[in-house]
């Protein structure tokens, strides 16, 4: 691929940096697909900038790249899609795992959210369980080693419960923290 040559060295640096980022983003694709993406972006940048006088070369290039968007964001769905096609064609397990990894990120996000919600609910329940069964619920140590946090039916000798009624405060605080974390994660996924 013929690279664009800019008169202004700053413009050249910006262009080279942008293409280095693009190359990193698409390195997972096969050589033909990589070349296609590079040529397409190169052609777009050339058409948008080649008429610009040298005095405004940097501004024109920056403006063009801003409109194209950050390669890490803009190219991610395209790379994921191309990887699926490649995996479907080749049946190569490496490609299949790469395609799964690229496409499952949102799925993993929602799975983590589900687990955090479960923990939030569990901490809330522990506050109630502590009231119903105070001897069996709490933060238990055996000697100087951790034994259990929560409800335990088994109470061997030498077991010490550390928190007492502060256990209820602790689990309610944990519930609040996990709920806050989940809301943040949800907003992040929604934004993406």
């Amino acid at each position: 691929m013929k690279r664009i040559v800019f008169i202004n060295p700053t413009a050249q640096k910006i262009y080279d940096d942008y293409f280095a980022r693009v190359s990193r983003c698409i390195s997972i694709l096969n050589d033909d697909d990589q070349l296609e993406v590079l040529m397409e972006l190169n052609s777009h940048i050339y058409e948008a900038t080649h008429m610009a006088p040298p005095a405004i070369e940097v501004d024109t290039l920056v403006n063009t790249l801003e409109k194209l968007g950050a390669p890490e964001v803009v190219l991610q769905p395209a790379v994921a899609y191309k990887k699926i096609q490649q995996a479907g064609r080749s049946f190569n397990p490496v490609h299949i795992f790469q395609a799964l990894y690229l496409n499952i990120s949102n799925g993993i996000g929602f799975l983590v959210m589900g687990i955090i919600y479960l923990l939030t609910f569990a901490f809330g329940s522990l506050a109630v369980v502590k009231i119903i069964s105070p001897e069996h619920t709490g933060l238990f140590l055996r000697g100087d080693r951790f034994f259990a946090f929560g409800y335990t039916h088994d109470l061997p000798s030498g077991l010490v419960e550390l928190l007492g009624n502060w256990f209820i405060v602790t689990v309610i605080m944990l519930m609040g923290i996990f709920y806050f974390l989940n809301t943040l994660l949800f907003r992040l996924l929604k934004k993406n």
């Binding site: 397409e40 052609s43 777009h44 948008a48 194209l68 968007g69 390669p71 803009v74």
Partner: peptide
Amino acid sequence: YGYELVQEIKIHTTLEVAEGTLYP
């Protein structure tokens, strides 16, 4: 061609499209 198509979309619509999303 790609760049020309982007300009054409801009002329005919008020949609602000991230140009990089057009190629995928």
